[in-house]
Design a protein around this nucleic acid. Structure first.
Lengths: 339, 339
DNA sequence: TCATATATCTTAATGCATTAAGATGGTAGC
DNA sequence: GCTACCATCTTAATGCATTAAGATATATGA
């Protein structure tokens, strides 16, 4: 006997297909007694719910939301900011009884599954240009986070203003400034940006933050030396330490480090302390993101808190609600001992 | 106007729906002239092929094969053995015009997508018990690689015999033996197995290999000391070096190292050389898997070559062909300077 | 020239499920 | 006792596509 279907189960029970369907989807449409009879019969016959493909076809939606992570899944799970975001998305999606399908940005064949999902939430600007093109042309709903796609809704914070605020909070006249930036150019190792072409992909967060830093510096009459702007390919300890070591060995030594993530900021402080540089007397540091570890570390790190879990929830909610604007979430500047 | 469908396109062109469908799926069923007219009309109307959900429903298959990787995706891409396997699968699937959907073993909701895929190729025994249960009960085709699931087809090599062969090739009477094993117990760091409960998950490859080692040792009258059997949680340099250092510091120092992967073998040789232990005079080493790096390294590493790319192809082919047996692929023992 | 084979396109049944609208029987109100 | 309404279930249209079988017209062969 082939796999049971709604129809075969209905016939076996002597009821209509609508009844079986309702037993699964709209319990209020039939008596409890009958519903339980149906459900137990289904279990017995090995029928485990309506076929998703048919359901998706009929309803026009599958209840599956694909989340595309720009970086590798591994990184995303280990990075506290990203994993908090993911938890927020998962929480909100569960609340809405939706399912979550996870993709890494290296996925290249969206066509394969576009018809099976309700749309995409894309976290972070993908490096993969083909993927970006596919997202642009995707007929399904697409919502971006931490970057913008023309004509698509997005969830973000005002990175320029936040960066400006954070810089203004630590900078003093006559400071020597260095910026430890994240993914500014197309290189896989930590290095000074120098005159490498900026990888300005969809006005990514990093460039907005850089703009904010520079606005603040401009107002204070400070300039950024050519070798004081560093590119870090991925927000982790190793890459951050390489950059921090290099920058703190320069002369004149920076008196302020503007860091585009908290992991970078913490790593920089570790390096500074190893080098015997006093914080905040000789060096002030400010991070970005707002993760718990900045509070446990000593000295505590000043940072822009952006509440990634809320961001995840907001993204999932905005995805569902259908609102098409570019939403800016609140952030909060919290000063620690590092400034 | 809503999204175009087969029907709407057919009406717009004044032909039947069958013609449009054939234009996409069976070009031989209509004249080239008409086919091109149809295709260009589709492009103009913004119709990009038959809806996959409907197609899947009608055809009973979607052409998507899901590959589940027991470890994290990141690890899989970096590990040469796994990534070769993946390449083999991808190559064969492409040949069959199928699509590949990648999952990590931490995925827990197969139900979400079972109706959308033709089945699962599962590489390596998942740690996630819920996932294993889902695979057992999955109504779709499931093929396992490097482990077995009762009643399911699998692709593998004869790990017991291969391990036996490799051990026999390096062992001599009176040897002191240590085993650097992979994922033998449920621990996330490198450590001696001692009396921790063996994590015998679905007769995984590691336990088969251990059986092979021990059969060989038995025949030579050798025994494995309690602290000479080590568990390594993941096949990478760091974890391997920790274990190798510990084992090579024991007294009496081992004269043979049986390693369950080449990465482990190579790391162990690196450690040995650092410690001033001569290979092969004072220590013989044998690995497992067969990766190119073993040939470039000096001394070259003896190993069991299992041709992971072929394994990937074989898995994809077996998945497709419908054969339901437990296939054993050939392996090859290649001796290097390490023994 | 007639019968037959070929190429090309259409008809209609089918896959599995959802859901608005209709049918049925019972209960409450007066 | 009659009407109105409610709870409960069924009917039937619908979503988007595939494909075997049927319908034409054109070409082939004797």
């Amino acid at each position: 006997m082939s796999k049971p279907t709604l129809k075969s189960v209905a016939k076996a029970l002597g009821v209509s297909t609508a009844t079986i369907s309702n037993a699964f989807n709209r319990p209020d449409q039939l008596s409890v007694a009958l519903r339980e009879k149906v459900l137990s019969a289904c279990a017995e016959l090995g029928y485990d719910g309506p076929n998703k493909a048919a359901q998706s076809l009929r309803k026009g939606s599958s209840g599956i939301v694909a989340v595309i992570l720009s970086d590798s899944l591994e990184y995303m799970v280990s990075d506290p900011v990203a994993s908090q975001f993911l938890q927020g998305v998962a929480r909100e999606l569960e609340r809405q009884q939706k399912h979550l399908l996870l993709f890494s940005g290296s996925s290249t064949n969206l066509d394969t599954i576009t018809d099976f999902v309700d749309g995409f939430i894309c976290y972070g600007a993908p490096r993969n240009l083909r993927l970006i093109e596919q997202l642009r042309q995707c007929p399904k709903r697409v919502l971006t986070v931490d970057f913008d796609l023309p004509g698509r809704p997005s969830v973000n914070i005002d990175n320029e203003q936040a960066a400006y605020d954070s810089a203004m909070a630590v900078l003093k006249p006559n400071d020597v400034v260095a910026v430890l930036g994240l993914r500014l150019i197309d290189a896989l190792d930590s290095r000074p940006v120098a005159d490498a072409p900026m990888w300005d992909n969809l006005s990514s967060v990093s460039h907005r933050r850089l703009d904010g830093y520079q606005r603040a510096m401009g107002e204070l009459g400070l300039t950024l030396a050519d070798d004081a702007l560093w590119h870090i390919p991925e927000s982790n300890q190793h890459f951050a330490e390489v950059a921090a070591k290099a920058v703190l060995s320069q002369s004149p030594r920076p008196t302020v480090l503007l860091c585009m993530s908290d992991l970078i900021g913490l790593s920089a402080m570790r390096v500074a302390l190893q080098l015997g540089v006093q914080i905040p007397e000789q060096l002030r540091v400010v991070g970005f993101d707002g993760i718990e570890e900045t509070l446990r570390y000593h000295p505590t790190l000043s940072s822009v808190w952006q509440f990634s879990d809320k961001k995840g929830e907001a993204a999932a909610r905005a995805f569902q609600s259908g609102q098409d604007d570019n939403q800016l979430l609140p952030y909060e500047l919290r000063l620690g001992e590092s400034s």
